[in-house]
Amino acid sequence: MPTPRPDVLNFLATRRSRPAKTLGLPVPDRAALIPMLEMAARSPDHGKLEPWRFVVLERAALLRLAQSVPRCSGAKGHDGEAIAKAQKQFTDAHLAVAVIEVQRPSPKIPAIEQTYSTGAVCLALLNAALASGWGANWLSGWPSHDRGFTEGSLDLAPNERIAGFIHIGTETTAPPERPRPDIAAITTWVAE
């Protein structure tokens, strides 16, 4: 018979991301952040390829990224409001971890499984931060998919891309609960 973990089940049943714009100071220091990164790195990883890595972005780095948004090639396709919104993700932040997908050549592990593993790392880091008492949010946005931005601002290699920015800080406002999926509507049971 399984042994339930009510504390963990309650956390999963009630977890809620905190909007990045509501996260303030203080933020976790390196000693507090390293255990969260270690927890995230325990994510499923078929083939033990470690198809991901972390880039910890502190305040000065985030402000530098904000300044580079209007200069990236993708900015040409966006109006001033979209550019300002993309910059705000960085100017409002005090700490974010960029989770970088690193596609590794493998005859056995398809690229899509490496992508799924990286997504699992993002969620695990988000949950580790929330479970540690911090507010946290997983964001991406169009700059994270712009090669000029990712290569020019974060020095990503051609086989790398940003899976998300996990913003971590002190919650300043509790977010309201939001509607959740209707499980009956999205679940199919197959018995035979």
Rank of each mutant, 00 (worst) to 15 (best):
I34R: 12
F149I: 02
V55R: 14
A86Y: 00
I162D: 03
N127T: 04
L95C: 01
K48W: 12
T22A: 14
E192Y: 03
W138I: 12
F149D: 05
K88Y: 11
A60Y: 09
S117H: 00
E171L: 14
H78L: 05
L23P: 02
M1K: 08
A128M: 02
L154R: 06
E58D: 15
M39Y: 11
L154I: 06
A111T: 14
F90Q: 02
T3W: 11
L63Y: 08
T173F: 11
I166M: 10
K88M: 04
C72H: 06
D155R: 12
R5Q: 12
P19S: 06
I83H: 05
R30L: 09
V56A: 10
K76I: 10
A41T: 14
A66W: 01
I183L: 13
M39V: 13
I162T: 07
K76V: 07
R59C: 06
A84S: 14
R42K: 15
E50W: 03
R18V: 15
P70V: 07
E177Q: 12
G141C: 00
P2E: 07
H46N: 05
D79V: 05
W134G: 01
A111E: 15
R15A: 08
E177F: 07
A84E: 12
Q67V: 04
W134Q: 06
A66S: 10
K108Q: 07
G133M: 01
L126S: 03
L65S: 02
I34M: 10
P28R: 08
I34S: 08
N10T: 09
P44C: 00
T22W: 13
P110T: 05
R178P: 01
R71T: 08
T14M: 01
E151D: 11
L125Q: 03
A129L: 05
I183R: 03
D79F: 02
